Simulated assay, not measured.
Amino acid sequence: MTSGKVWLIGAGPGAADLITVRGMRLLQAADCVLYDALVQPEMLAYCPQATLIDVGKRCDQASMQQKFINKMLVDAAHKYQRVVRLKGGDPMLFGRAQEELHALDEAGIAYEVVPGITAALAASADAGISLTSRGLARNVLFATARVGHGEDPSDWVRPVVAADTAVLYMGVKQAAEVAAALLAGGLRADTPLLIIENASLPQSREWAMTLAELPLAASWQLAGPAILLIGEVYRARLALAEAAPMQARA
């Protein structure tokens, strides 16, 4: 059976104009686009000629199982010549890309990965605070505390505690558990952190707090995806926020 080619493209953190030029050009030439839940409608406007298939997955919401997404991707490559799998952020970071690439390998389908801007970098840009700082933060860790169904827990606490700056993906809804684990792991209660919601979008919001205050975020009803940034590089921002704690900065 003749197959087309698949491009796994990073859509970036949200803003439609943060996709790479290569990614946008491939979208404009695509016959079929399978896209994630976090992909903005403005980005899909780049490919009006393509058949659009929503395969979005969101934490704690009913969504399509990964094995079905894998099959749909293979089926699309058998039907179309130019297939784009549009994934939020960067495809190779917490995006289940390896499972999809494995399915394509098994089916003998050619593919190419086009990187994108991950949420950690967009959140850092929104805050105006570098993830690294000379003499203060010489390393950065990207981690997640989330465990999928049927998966074994990972030892994420020790590397987060040891990192100069840590970025925790998909951790805000588990804020109380995350805080308890990090405190038990030895991270100080007064460690500064930021929560950034909707990084790169006009409705982006920021909260500065200490690790001890993090459990408060578990009850927030955030409308968009949020990311947690932890480390001493956020100490000055925390000091500015102390006069009006827990106030969102638009």
Rank of each mutant, 00 (worst) to 15 (best):
Leu93Cys: 03
His149Lys: 12
Val6Lys: 00
Val161Glu: 03
Asp90Phe: 05
Leu222Phe: 12
Leu194Ile: 01
Gly108Asn: 01
Arg58Asp: 13
Phe68Ser: 10
Val83Ser: 13
Leu18His: 07
Trp156Pro: 09
Ala218Glu: 15
Val233Gly: 14
Val157Ile: 08
Met64Ser: 06
Pro192Asn: 08
Lys57Trp: 10
Asp60Ile: 10
Met1Leu: 13
Val84Ala: 11
Arg235Tyr: 00
Ala244Phe: 07
Gly89Ile: 00
Ala50Glu: 01
Lys79Ile: 06
Tyr35Ser: 05
Leu52Cys: 11
Gln203Leu: 07
Cys32Gly: 13
Arg158Glu: 11
Lys71Pro: 00
Asp17Gly: 09
Asp126Gln: 10
Arg22Phe: 10
Arg205Glu: 09
Ala37His: 12
Ala137Gln: 08
Pro159Met: 15
Arg58Thr: 14
Val178Gly: 07
Arg205Ser: 12
Lys57Asn: 04
Pro245Val: 06
Thr118Gln: 08
Ala179Thr: 04
Val113Ser: 05
Ala250His: 05
Glu100Cys: 14
Pro48Tyr: 00
Leu222Asn: 13
Asp152Glu: 14
Val84Lys: 06
Ser133Gly: 07
Lys87Asn: 00
Arg25Asn: 10
Glu42Ile: 04
Arg82Met: 03
Val55Gln: 02
Asp36Ala: 10
Val55Tyr: 04
Ile53Lys: 08
Trp220Met: 09
Gly171Val: 06
Tyr169Gly: 03
Val140Asn: 13
Leu211Gly: 07
Cys32Glu: 09
Gly186Ile: 12
Leu86Cys: 06
Lys79Glu: 08
Gly231Arg: 07
Met170Ile: 14
Gly4Ser: 02
Ala175Glu: 05
Gln66Cys: 11
Gly171Ile: 13
Val147Cys: 14
Ala29Glu: 04
Asp31Phe: 01
Leu26Val: 12
Leu8Pro: 06
Thr165Trp: 08
Pro159Ser: 11
Ala123Arg: 12
Ile195Asp: 10
Gln65Thr: 02
Val167Ala: 08
Leu26Gln: 13
Ala37Ser: 11
Ala199Glu: 00
Arg188Asn: 14
Ala250Glu: 11
Gly10Tyr: 04
Ala218Ile: 00
Val178Ile: 15
Ala119Lys: 02
Asp152Pro: 11
Thr51Phe: 02
Leu182Lys: 14
Leu73Glu: 09
Ser63Thr: 10
Ala243Gly: 05
Gln40Leu: 02
Val178Gln: 15
Ala241Lys: 10
Ala163Gly: 08
Gly12Tyr: 01
Ala143Arg: 07
Ala16Gly: 12
Pro215Asn: 11
Ser204Lys: 02
Ala125Cys: 15
Ala243His: 10
Thr165Pro: 07
Trp156Val: 12
Pro159Gly: 07
Lys71Cys: 09
Leu216His: 12
Ala50Gln: 09
Ala97Phe: 02
Pro245Ser: 11
Val39Glu: 03
Arg158Tyr: 06
Val39Ser: 13
Val33Ile: 12
Ala110Leu: 10
Lys173Asn: 14
Ala145Tyr: 04
Ala16Asn: 01
Ala120Pro: 09
Asp17Cys: 05
Ala107Gly: 14
Asp164Lys: 10
Leu201Met: 11
Glu100Met: 04
Phe68Thr: 15
Arg22Val: 06
Pro192Thr: 08
Asp75Lys: 02
Ala76Met: 04
Lys57Tyr: 10
Pro245Asp: 15
Tyr234Gln: 01
Gln221Arg: 15
Thr118Lys: 07
Thr118Glu: 03
Ala145Trp: 02
Leu187Tyr: 05
Glu197Ile: 04
Ala110Ile: 10
Met1Thr: 03
Lys71Ser: 14
